[in-house]
Structure formats: C-alpha cells, structure tokens
Amino acid sequence: MDLQFFGSCVLQFCVAMVATVCFSLAFQVPRRHFVACGTAGAVGWVVYIICTAAGLSMPAATLVATFPLAGISRFFAITHRAPVTLFLLCAIFPLVPGAGIYYTAYYLLNNEQILFASKGVETLKTAVALAMGIAIVCSIPLPRRISRHQYRGPKMN
C-alpha cells in the first residue's frame, strides 16, 4: 500500500463518515449515536475500496466489508445499549449497490442487453452478499456474560 493510496483511503474514510451520518439523520437516529454510525459506515466503505483495489469482485468485496461493519455495529449496540439495527441500517448504506441499480437501468435503456444482464446479476449478487454478511455476523452467538447486556431484553423460557 503506497502513500498516495493511503491518503485517498483517509479521505474516503472521512467522506464516507459524513455520508453515513447524513443517513443516520434521515433515519432519525438520536444524536448521541452519530459517531458510532459514522465509524461503522466508514470502516465498511474503506474495507470495500481496499478489497476492490486488491482485485476482488464487487460482491466479494461487499461480503468482506460487511464483516467488520456488522461487528462494529454489534460492538456499539452493546456499549451504547441500543438496538443493533440503529447502526447497521445507516452503516450499510455506502455499500448498497445504488450505482448497480442505476447502470442496470441505463444499459436496458441503451439496448445493451448483455451489459444489462451482467450488471443486473452483479447488483443482485451484491445485495445478497450484503445481507449474507450481516446475517453471518449477527448470528454468531455472544458469550452469555456479554449478550446479557445486549438490548434484546431477557430471553423467556
């Protein structure tokens, strides 16, 4: 990793953080969680760009990026005693394949059927990768000692 790439990563980190905080605002997240949301989103995005720079495909990079993202979200859910959704929903936004949706429509319009099909499939794969990554991390059970502090309340039965 050379210096220039590192510099651009730092810049991307900051911008991704601001973008995620904007989304937390749109989702009416209370102010005290802004930094946590921003951090989770920015880490996810930076991991994503490092993975794509290393040559991973978009869905694979998204899958890898959701691991630290969801992990950080769970961490903040425990320390802030708030539902993990709060952090997760805001933080995944940079990784949502919005560009994929756009290009799929764009190629459809340009009558470029092959590009349309490949972009459409890639978009779908990215979306599934995103959800799978979250599901994997969120289904890792925590030790009882920690999960008791998590926000879902005591389990019945």
């Binding site: 989304f23 749109a26 997760l88 929903l89 995944i92 936004f93 949502v96 394949p97 919005g98 560009a99 949706i101 756009y102 764009y106 979306a127 599934v128 995103l130 959800a131 799978m132 979250i134 599901a135 969120c138 289904s139």
Partner: peptide, 25 residues
C-alpha cells in the same frame, strides 16, 4: 452519471433490501 448515482443513493431501497433478506434468513 456520477452526479445521478450520488443523488440516487439517497433514494435506494437499501433498508428494505437488506432487511428483506435478513427476514428470510
């Protein structure tokens, strides 16, 4: 395209998409 994608991101159904797949899982 760059500008349109940026603006569209705010509208994308990211929440519904991810929560839908999570519900299914």
């Amino acid at each position: 395209s760059g500008a349109i994608i940026g603006a569209l991101m705010v509208l994308t159904p990211g929440v519904a998409l991810t929560m839908g797949i999570r519900d299914i899982i």
